[in-house]
Write a protein that binds this DNA or RNA. Structure first.
Length: 828
DNA sequence: AGCACGCCGACT
DNA sequence: GTCGGCGTGCTC
């Protein structure tokens, strides 16, 4: 960074500003500050600059100096956009660290960190604020011109406005219009985030009295028979489901909205609007002044003690152990100390439900930061954090970029969630790790919470880098579910299996249905059958791109590749030998659903997997159906393990645990344990005893034993030993990989494929690759690579190519920049 | 990220 | 003979 210049009496001093552009370019650029802006320019303020031939960008001033660049003539800054910095020095340093750690450019971090409205560029779209009532008489000439143009053409770009006004510098005008809420600024047309609402009907409790009810019916029968029908339909529905929605009632009774309105006007019905955000979490509402249970209190004391010497504490508490209450206590503590709090949640959990609960405690001190919010709202949160109006920010991963200056505590709930990691555009950061680093900068404490901690966090806790607090019992005496392991081998011998369902599972399903409770069945594969085989010649249809067997989907009658999405019509004749004896082998969610429906013709069965949730709102609709008990049994993939919590789901069936137990890489146990434990944790709520049935061919499998005892310790101790071997004397390992993608050569994105292959071995510790490198290592197929394992580093040493079959020696740093494998996460 | 320059395949 | 594909390099 350039030296700081004395900003006083600088009228005649020539200043140069080093700026960060929101682009993937390697370094910062230097612009000359016009004399008249000498006083206005400052580190952290936004400036308009021209970059390249015609593009205008918003850049952030990263440094100010007095020395003119030697090798080129600096252009002038066009404008200083802010009266005071919008980005703090702390943030700039955080960006730099992030760019370095995740191998990208600071500009890319800036692009991810700033809400779109703070980084206007010439292609940025401008539109009228649909909510604003514009008093045109108060507008200046230029503003009037813009509003007028937007009336005719609702979306204009900044460059359109440059043409419209006939002047180059339009940002001040646009900025003031944005501040006055006249216009919206956006890169794309952003959807406004609205909590989903649903209307529910309640009968006036007056009519629970038999006499009153009889009187009501007599009256209605006589004067409004349709209304009587509606009330009758309501009574019937309310016996079947706890909540009757307006839509249900209209459907069931054929009543129109007018009829329901009339009944509500007569105060026979009450209509209640409720937020539909049923995901996640302990179902009971927090009492206004809750008391911690003994277990919670012990965990809290543990955490507080650990915080005396450790920066990070992992709270490992079983599902429903009441972790949220502990977070709230800690947040209160931090607030009393006058500090800011960052509370991170995975995207899926950030629902109005959770937000409301926390708002109840912290009132207007709490801000919510979410990618689904529109940009104006995001800028508002940004500003309010900057002004200290928000003391607590509840947010998804991008909330780590907010301008905190007095952070005291970071809570990362569900820290194992993979959605904390951003994959697609750089920076490919993990918000959990970034938050740990961020907290370190402020000497703030971090609490990681999970029922199924990630490997690295548990490792760090077990080896003493993090503190560890545990809660092993559920809150309020809700008991842990009973887990029964069923040997498929044995039941097959006894001939008690009905299709894929053991007698144990069938019994439990039946019992649940009789008690009007619900069931979730977990099957780790979607589609109908993962393989189609010719019984005569053993031919199997394979994907033409990926060389994996195609999965049969009954609903589409097509064979699908689950890797690349390739699709072809299903076969009735073997293309190799002409035989018609084609057999579907294995089973997926579709088949489970089908066969269960045959066995239980009256049950209402639904399926939740990628195929049924692709449509907009399909996922939400399924959840609503489950909540409102229009579904008895839900069959699903991974998806059902994430955050679903419903009071009446008492039985969970894992159709075949074996597909989870056979991952080849060393993180297998972690993943399968997490998945099984997450699924199991969903059974039983509100005083109901839950039951988990695990069907398997390997009842003795280590991981199954650990799931039963919920024993993370045992699971990890052996893994940690294995990990230690990685750490000590450096050794080399060759990984074979076979990259067969048809397009690999054409696309040249070898590093991308390298990354895909490496991820199979090392999971998401593999990061990259970055574009500039990709183009340098293209034009050959990677056959094998040699990795060097050292204490704190795993690096790529050699790459063997297929085409010329020669070993190419790369500079480790050069190649590893394209695709690096991180050692244990260590943000310090 | 954009944009220009430059070098090889299918076309009025 | 040109148009246009994308590969490469540059932007203060």
């Amino acid at each position: 960074m350039l030296e700081f210049a004395d900003n006083h009496h600088t009228d005649r001093l020539t200043l140069f500003a080093e700026v960060i552009l929101p682009l993937a370019i390697a370094k910062n650029y230097t612009y000359r500050v016009p004399y008249e802006m000498n006083d206005a320019v400052a580190v952290g303020k936004r400036v308009m600059v021209q970059f390249g031939k015609s593009k205008l960008y918003t850049a952030i001033v990263a440094g100010i100096g007095t020395e003119a660049p030697q090798k080129y003539e600096a252009k002038y800054l066009l404008e200083v956009l802010d009266d005071r910095p919008v980005v703090t020095q702390q943030q700039l340093e955080f960006w730099k660290w992030l760019a370095d750690y995740y191998l990208c450019n600071v500009g890319e971090v800036m692009a991810a960190a700033l809400p779109a409205a703070l980084k206007l560029a010439s292609e940025t779209k401008i539109m009228l604020n649909p909510d604003g009532n514009i008093d045109r008489s108060l507008l200046h000439d230029k503003e009037f011109l813009i509003v007028d143009a937007l009336d005719i053409q609702p979306i204009l770009s900044v460059s359109d406005i440059v043409k419209l006004l006939g002047q180059k510098i339009v940002m001040p005008v646009l900025k003031s219009m944005f501040d006055k809420n006249i216009i919206h600024i956006s890169e794309e047309v952003s959807e406004r985030y609205k909590p989903r609402k649903r209307s529910y009907i309640k009968l006036n409790s007056l009519y629970n009295e038999p006499d009153m009810r009889r009187e009501l019916f007599a009256e209605l029968e006589r004067r409004a028979p349709k209304q009587a029908d509606a009330v009758l339909a309501y009574l019937k529905l309310s016996r079947e489901q706890p909540l009757v929605s307006k839509n249900d009632l209209m459907e069931a009774s054929g009543a129109s909205a007018a009829i329901i309105k009339a009944l509500s006007d007569k105060e026979v019905f009450y209509i209640e609007e409720r937020n539909v955000s049923r995901l996640y979490y302990e179902e009971f509402d927090l009492a206004a002044n809750f008391e911690l249970s003994e277990a919670q209190q012990n965990a809290l004391t543990d955490i507080q003690n650990h915080f005396k010497e450790k920066e990070v504490v992992l709270l490992h508490g079983v599902t429903s152990s009441g972790k949220t209450e502990i977070y709230i206590r800690l947040v209160e503590e931090a607030l009393h100390a006058g500090k800011q709090v960052l509370y991170l949640l995975p995207e899926i959990a950030l629902t109005t439900h959770v937000i409301e609960r926390l708002r109840k405690y912290f009132g207007n001190d709490i801000g919510v930061y979410h990618s689904r919010f529109n940009d104006n709202e995001r800028v508002e949160v940004w500003q309010k954090v900057l002004n200290h109006e928000y003391k607590v920010v509840l947010g998804a991963r991008s909330a780590v970029f907010l301008p905190f200056d007095n952070l005291g505590l970071v809570v990362v709930d569900e820290e194992h969630e993979t959605s904390y990691k951003q994959f697609d555009p750089a920076p490919r950061y993990n918000a959990r790790d970034a938050a740990i680093y961020l907290a370190g900068r402020y000497q703030a404490k971090v609490l990681l919470g999970s029922a199924t901690p990630s490997f690295e966090s548990y490792f760090n806790a077990r080896t003493g880098k993090f503190g560890l607090a545990e809660i092993t019992e559920r809150f309020g005496g809700v008991s842990l579910p009973e887990i029964e392991v069923v040997s498929i081998t044995e039941e097959t011998k006894k001939k008690t299996m009905q299709s894929h369902f053991s007698s144990v599972l069938m019994n439990d399903i039946q019992t649940a249905l009789t008690n009007k409770e619900q069931v979730i069945l977990f099957q780790n594969r979607r589609g109908y059958a993962p393989v189609l085989v010719c019984r005569v010649c053993a031919f199997t249809p394979k994907c033409i791109n990926c060389d994996v067997s195609l999965t049969y989907h009954k609903s589409s009658a097509h064979l699908h590749c689950h890797y690349c999405g390739y699709k072809e019509e299903s076969l009735s004749v073997c293309p190799a030998c002409g035989s018609t004896h084609l057999e579907y082998k294995g089973f997926g969610t579709e088949k489970i659903e089908d066969e269960l429906q045959v066995l239980l013709p009256d049950a209402r069965i639904a399926r939740m997997d990628l195929d049924t949730t692709r449509a907009r709102n399909a996922y939400q609709n399924l959840l609503n159906d489950l909540e409102e008990k229009r579904i008895d049994i839900l069959v699903g993939t991974q998806m059902v393990a994430k955050g679903l919590d419903f009071a009446d789901v008492t039985v969970i069936g894992i159709i075949n645990a074996d597909s989870l137990l056979k991952y080849p890489d060393y993180r297998a146990n972690e993943r399968s344990f997490q998945m099984l434990a997450q699924v199991s944790g969903r059974a039983g709520r509100r005083g109901k005893q839950g039951k988990v049935v695990i069907q398997t061919y390997n009842p003795q499998h280590r991981v199954i034993g650990q799931v039963i005892s919920n024993d993370y310790k045992e699971l990890y101790l052996s893994e940690i030993d294995e990990r230690k071997n990685f750490k000590y004397p450096p050794f080399y390992r060759i990984i074979q990989m076979d990259i067969k993608h048809k397009d690999a050569e054409k696309l040249h994105y070898q590093a991308e494929y390298l990354a895909v292959e490496l991820r199979k071995h090392f999971g998401d510790r593999v990061i990259g690759p970055e574009y500039p490198l990709v183009s340098r290592i293209r034009n050959f197929y990677i056959k094998s690579i040699m990795l060097k394992f050292e204490k704190d580093n795993i690096s790529i040493v050699k790459v063997k190519s297929v085409i010329r079959d020669v070993i190419l020696q790369f500079q480790t740093t050069q190649l590893s920049k394209g695709c690096i494998i991180q050692p244990d996460v260590d943000p310090y």
